[in-house]
Write a protein that binds this DNA or RNA. Structure first.
Lengths: 335, 335
DNA sequence: CCACCTCCCGCAACCGGCTCCGCTGATCGT
DNA sequence: ACGATCAGCGGAGCCGGTTGCGGGAGGTGG
C-alpha cells in the first residue's frame, strides 16, 4: 500500500492536517520548524498525495476529456497533440475517447467521462442532439471543437469558418481554369460538412458553374481513395477535385496515380486541413489550413475560463482559414 | 450539484446501503420490492454513481495510462487507436501522455498518472533507468510496449523482434542487388534503435558488405526528409535506404523526389512499421510490419491479467515481423 | 497579576460511495 | 410451542485527503 498523509504526520510528529497545510501552503500558516519536519518526512517516506482522494474532496479532478473521431486522420492526430500540449502546460491530464463516428460509442464515452467527474469536455461531435442533452444535464464546462452541431448555441464553440474555407479552396481551383470539379465531402449528418458543401456551391455559382452534388464519404484516406476510383470508373469528366480533408486528399492522390492521371496537369487537387501529412504527400497538397495550435489554445483557454473562473457565457470563436499552396493545384506548374 | 446515493435512498425510502446493494448486485441480497423502488428512484432522479468516490473506496479507477512519444507519427497513432479500442472494450478509460522524447516530461506524466491511481501503465519509454525506478517504487502493473529498455527484465514487455525485423528489411534490399545502402536510424539512446541497427549490421556482414554507420535522426517525417537531403548533399553514393520508421520513409521519399531520384529505380526504400500512411505513400512503402492490433491486444490482456487476476510474473511477448511488399523496393519493377 | 491577542496547531466534519456486521422479524423443524 | 435459521435491511466505519473551528502556549500592555 502507498504511504498516506497519516503516516507522514506520525513520522513528523504532527497532525495530518498540518501535512495538508504544508502541502497546499494551507489555509493556515505553519511554523518554519514544523514545515521542515513535515517536508523531511515526506522526503524520506516518498509520500505522494492521492489525487483521487483530493478530487473527491474538492470536486475537482484536474482532468479534461476529449472526444474525437479517430487517431488515424492526421488532422485529428495533430489536434490531439496540440490539445494535449496545452492541457499539460496547464497541469491537466487528458483523457481521449474516439467515437469512430458511432453515436453509441460517443454516448458511452460521454457518460463514462461525466461519471469520472472530468472538469471539462472537448467535443468533436459526430453530431446530433441527444449527446448535447447528456451534457446539458451535467452542466459541465464544454467546448465544441472543430465542429458546431446544429442547436449547440448554448455551448462554447471553437471552429474554423468552414463555408469560407471551402469557398477559398474551390475558388482557387476555378482560378486555375478548372471547370469539371468534383467535391469529396464527409459524412452528411455533420453540420460542418454541410457548411463546407455550402461553400463549394457558393463558389461555383458565383463563377457561373453548375455544381455537381458532393460525394459523401468518410474523412479517411480510404474514403478519398475509393471515391476517386469510383469517379474514374464512372467516367465522370474531372479536372479538379476538392476534398474536405487531407486524408481524403492523400487517398485521392493515390487513386489518381494508379489510374495514370497526372496531378496537377490532368487533375488539380485542393484539400482541407493543412496537415503535415499533406505537406509530405506527392505532390504536396494545396490545402486550406486549420491552425490547430490556435484551435487548441483557444479551446483550452475557454475551458479554463469556465472551470477556474466560473465563466458561464458561451464563447464562439471562428478562425479564419488560410490557403496553403502546395504543388497539387498547379501553382508551381505552367498552368 | 449532482444527485447522490443518499438522495436516491431517501426517494426510495431505503438506506443508502441498499442502493449500493442494488447497483452492484451487492454483497447482500435485496428484496424484489425494494430493488424496484430503488431502480425507479434512480431512473426518475437520473442518478449516476460518482466514479471518483467509488475509486477512492475500492482503490480501483478502471483507467490505464499510456505514455508514447507523440501523436504525429502514424505508427504511434495507430498504436494509440488499437490500444484505446482494446481498453474501451474492457471498460477502461485511457489517459494518454506524450513525451516528445523528453525525459523530464515523461517523468512528470509518470508521476501524475501514479498520483491519479491508474490501474495500469503502458509505457513506450524514451529509455533510461530513472523512470523505471519510479514505477518499481509504485509497484503498479506495467507493460513496456514497442520498446524494452535495458534493465527492464522485471517488467512485462510486448515488442516486435527488432533486430530480426531490421535484418529482414536489409536482406530484402540486398536481394534486389542494392549494395550502397544507408540506414536512417532513430534516437541512439533507445534500446530498440540499437537492436534495429544490430539487425542492419548483421544482414550486411552476412552478405559480406561493409556497413556504413547508421544515421541517427528522429523517427519523424522531418527526420527522414532532412537526413536524405544531407545525404545527397554530401554526395554519398546510395541505391538503397532502410528507414527505421514509416514516417522517416515518407520523409525520405519526399527528399528523393525533390532531388530527382526515382524510387525504386535509382534508390530503393524499405521502411519499418507497416502503417496505413506508408501504404498511401508514393510509391507505396515496402515496410516490415508491426501488427499493432496484436501488440495492443496482448498488451491490454497482459495488463488485465496483472490488475484483475493479480498475476505478478512478468510476461515477455515477442512478435514476429513480416515484410509487407509495396512498390518502393523494386519488387513490382523490372529489377 | 490579569486580560487579551497572536501564533500554531489538532479535532473532527465532511466529499460519496462500499461493505462489514448486527439487528429484526418471519419461517422452519421437532 | 419454542429455539434455530435465515432473508432483508440499516448503522457506521472506512478510503485519503481538505478545511472550519476552537483551544493552548506564550507574549504584551494596563
Amino acid at each position: 500500500m502507498a504511504v498516506t498523509r497519516a503516516e507522514v504526520a506520525r513520522a513528523a510528529g504532527v497532525s495530518p492536517a498540518l501535512v495538508s497545510y504544508v502541502l497546499n501552503d494551507g489555509p493556515r500558516p505553519v511554523s518554519a520548524d514544523a514545515r521542515a519536519r513535515v517536508l523531511r518526512a515526506i522526503e524520506t517516506l516518498g509520500y505522494r498525495p492521492n489525487r483521487v482522494a483530493r478530487a473527491l474532496r474538492q470536486s475537482r479532478t484536474n482532468s479534461i476529456a476529449m472526444l474525437m473521431p479517430d487517431h488515424q486522420n492526421p488532422h485529428f492526430a495533430e489536434l490531439a497533440q496540440a490539445v494535449e500540449d496545452e492541457a499539460f502546460a496547464a497541469d491537466y491530464v487528458l483523457m481521449i475517447g474516439t467515437t469512430a463516428n458511432d453515436p453509441e460509442r460517443e454516448r458511452s464515452y460521454l457518460r463514462s467521462f461525466l461519471d469520472r467527474q472530468v472538469d471539462g469536455l472537448l467535443l468533436i461531435s459526430v453530431g446530433g442532439r441527444p449527446d448535447l442533452d447528456l451534457i446539458t444535464g451535467a452542466s459541465i464546462p464544454v467546448v465544441l471543437l472543430d465542429r458546431a452541431p446544429a442547436g449547440s448555441d448554448g455551448f462554447s464553440t471553437v471552429v474554423i469558418d468552414n463555408a469560407r474555407a471551402a469557398e477559398l479552396a474551390v475558388q482557387h481551383l476555378l482560378g486555375h481554369g478548372r471547370r469539371s470539379l468534383v467535391c469529396l465531402s464527409g459524412p452528411p449528418h455533420i453540420e460542418a460538412v454541410r457548411q463546407r458543401e455550402q461553400g463549394w456551391r457558393r463558389a461555383l455559382s458565383a463563377a457561373g458553374c453548375a455544381a455537381s452534388p458532393p460525394r459523401n464519404v468518410t474523412f479517411s484516406r480510404d474514403g478519398g481513395y475509393r471515391a476517386v476510383q469510383e469517379l474514374l470508373a464512372e467516367g465522370v469528366p474531372v479536372d479538379g477535385i476538392f476534398t474536405t480533408s487531407d486524408a481524403q486528399g492523400i487517398g485521392a492522390l493515390r487513386a489518381l496515380a494508379e489510374a495514370g492521371r497526372r496531378v496537377p496537369e490532368d487533375v488539380a487537387v485542393v484539400s482541407f486541413d493543412g496537415t503535415e501529412a499533406g505537406r509530405y504527400a506527392q505532390p504536396v497538397l494545396t490545402s486550406v489550413a486549420q491552425d490547430v495550435g490556435t484551435l487548441a489554445r483557444t479551446a483550452i483557454a475557454t475551458l479554463r475560463a469556465q472551470i477556474e473562473a466560473g465563466q458561464t457565457a458561451p464563447v464562439h470563436e471562428v478562425l479564419v482559414p488560410a490557403l496553403r499552396i502546395g504543388a497539387s493545384c498547379g501553382c508551381h506548374a505552367g498552368s
